[in-house]
């Protein structure tokens, strides 16, 4: 379980997260909405442990352990992983090597890459000249190899073309054990019990909801998680009246 209590974060002099409470239980996937610049990426980076995001108050607990001040690699070892919105290029490091580094055990990176249409990129340097959509698939491939227990996806479907989007969506769903239920699924209960993976997915478009059976939607607004609701509802509300209205309406209803 991931538990965030009254988290306040500063980036430089700027207060970017004012008050965050969030709980993701094993088997749950949450969707994170919010306008540009509201701090969504910052929240994920803080959970991952990027030191420039300075936690000034509050606490992050993962699997019962206080990780608020753990270095990035120790969080990764505990099972936190992130698909980045804008990852850096690493010259001279082939994507193939990177995928192998992500996996704790031997893997067959060719087979993994095929699943996201990425075989052709394995021998290119990580992120070097990758297009927007290619970066997303590269990040996803790394998540597949790493298979962390908590997956933080920063806009995984932005910029992905129509052909690849279902590939990306389904892959994320299966990583998070959140494939949409088939009509004749008999043991839904059983499936739910077996789920352990946790997910937090940032999206603007909500396309990912067509593939991933998300449990909750969250809206980050003004440095706070201003509402928790059904992700589809949030999406349609924001679409109709915008974030400001949407946050107010839902807050009032609660």
């Amino acid at each position: 379980m991931l538990q965030i209590e009254d988290l306040q974060v500063k980036l430089g002099e700027k207060e970017i997260l004012k008050h965050i409470d969030l709980e993701i239980r094993p088997g749950e996937t949450h969707i994170l909405f919010g306008p540009n610049g509201s701090g969504k990426t910052s929240l994920l980076m803080t959970i991952m442990g990027y030191p420039q995001y300075e936690v000034v108050a509050g606490k992050i607990t993962f699997k019962g352990e206080d990780i608020t001040h753990l270095p990035i690699d120790e969080r990764a070892k505990l099972g936190v992983g992130m698909s980045f919105q804008r990852p850096p290029t690493i010259n001279g490091l082939k994507t193939r090597q990177m995928v192998r580094l992500c996996a704790k055990d031997e893997i067959d990176e060719e087979t993994l890459a095929k699943q996201v249409n990425f075989e052709g990129f394995l021998d290119r340097d990580v992120n070097a000249g990758f297009s927007g959509g290619e970066i997303k698939r590269s990040e996803l491939l790394q998540m597949m190899a790493q298979a962390p227990d908590l997956m933080l996806f920063d806009e995984p479907e932005s910029g992905v073309d129509m052909e690849n989007i279902s590939l990306v969506g389904k892959t994320i769903a299966s990583l998070l054990q959140k494939d949409l239920p088939d009509v004749e699924t008999k043991s839904k209960m059983q499936a739910r019990l077996n789920r352990t993976k946790m997910g937090l997915i940032i999206t603007h478009t909500g396309y990912i909801l067509d593939y991933v059976a998300a449990d909750k939607g969250q809206v980050l607004y003004d440095g706070m998680l201003s509402c928790v609701s059904n992700p589809h509802e949030i999406l349609s509300c924001v679409g109709e009246s915008g974030y400001k209205e949407c946050v107010r309406c839902i807050t009032e209803n609660n």
Partner: peptide
């Protein structure tokens, strides 16, 4: 930023640095 990226994949800071240096060379 590059070191942090590799650390987020589970490499220690030293391993990340070594990997980047090897790539550079």
């Amino acid at each position: 930023e590059e070191i942090a990226y590799l650390m987020s994949r589970g490499l220690s800071e030293d391993e990340a640095t070594a990997t980047i240096v090897r790539g550079f060379l």
